[in-house]
């Protein structure tokens, strides 16, 4: 049973994460102070897992994604992308509702209806042209809207950057998905896995060449991804493109620059980390 496997995997990750977090109680040296500021108490494990993921990406995932991107005609890629997106619509809809956002829920509902019919089972994003643009929601975002903090940074095997909140969200999403139940009822147990792999390849292909560029260019690739992941999640949670809220930070002005950094909103998370640390 695939879901059991996911559950067990998630449980293992969470348990080991908590254990390691407890083991890595700050001892007051520079490295642990830095880890607290980065909200990354598991940095040693995370960096190792990041390396493993990157190695798997280099030998397996990227070659497949590259082949997909360069061999499969663009038109089919668009259809596959649309089809996979349409499959995720029920989960997006559920999260729109759970977040108390009727406008978005209506939008997703219309998208699913239009694309499943006129869009020929989702292979065309007919709805986007009809004025219902696509958006993403997941249960990790729903938890955030409900006020759940993200917790420490966590690199998951193969799945990559995450945190306890988003990991739980991912598991919940798989339970929210009617297609998973449909597949099980029809003994098509490979379906959820096939779909997950397809989504992974599709997403990875879209990141060529950005991922490679970033990897070559950054001085500390791990820290870059960690920061970008968090900012991106924060933007997704705020539905940033709609509300237009931007992170507050201060570029300072002239002679005030040095002082301005002290009041910088981005130094604030360190306190939250300490609170989180005490809670454990």
């Amino acid at each position: 049973m695939p879901t059991t496997v996911i559950k067990r995997l998630a449980a293992c990750v969470l348990v080991s994460a908590t254990l390691t977090a407890c083991a890595a109680t700050p001892s007051g040296n520079d490295a642990s102070v830095q880890s607290m500021r980065d909200n990354d108490p598991l940095e040693t494990y995370n960096r190792a897992m990041f390396q493993v993921n990157d190695a798997i990406d280099t030998v397996l995932i990227r070659p497949v994604a590259w082949t997909y991107k360069n061999v499969v005609p663009g038109h089919f890629q668009y259809q596959i992308d649309s089809f996979l997106n349409n499959l995720s619509a029920p989960v997006v809809l559920a999260n729109d509702i759970l977040q108390g956002n009727p406008d978005r829920a209506f939008n997703t509902f219309m998208r699913f209806m239009l694309n499943s019919t006129f869009g020929l089972a989702g292979i065309n994003d007919f709805a986007a042209e009809a004025g219902f643009p696509r958006h993403e929601e997941d249960f990790g975002q729903t938890l955030a809207v409900w006020g759940v903090q993200d917790g420490p940074y966590l690199v998951l095997p193969i799945l990559g950057p995450s945190n306890p909140r988003d990991t739980v969200g991912m598991v919940v999403d798989s339970f929210l998905d009617p297609f998973n139940y449909l597949a099980r009822a029809n003994s098509a147990e490979a379906f959820p896995w096939g779909r997950r792999v397809a989504s992974g390849i599709d997403t990875r292909a879209e990141l060529i060449p950005q991922y490679e560029n970033l990897k070559e260019e950054s001085v500390d690739f791990y820290a870059t991804i960690r920061s970008a992941y968090r900012q991106r999640r924060a933007a997704e949670i705020d539905n940033i493109t709609e509300s237009g809220d931007l992170p507050e930070y201060d570029f300072g002005n002239g002679a005030m620059d040095g002082a301005a950094f002290d009041g910088d909103a981005f130094d604030a998370p360190a306190e939250e980390i300490q609170e989180g640390g005490q809670a454990q």
């Binding site: 830095q34 870059t224 920061s227 900012q231 924060a234 940033i240 493109t241 930070y249």
Partner: peptide, 15 residues
């Protein structure tokens, strides 16, 4: 798309 270049550099270089 919500990711600030300056903030990303800042976080990377801080480490």
């Amino acid at each position: 798309e919500g990711v600030s270049m300056a903030l990303t550099y800042r976080s990377e270089y801080d480490a």
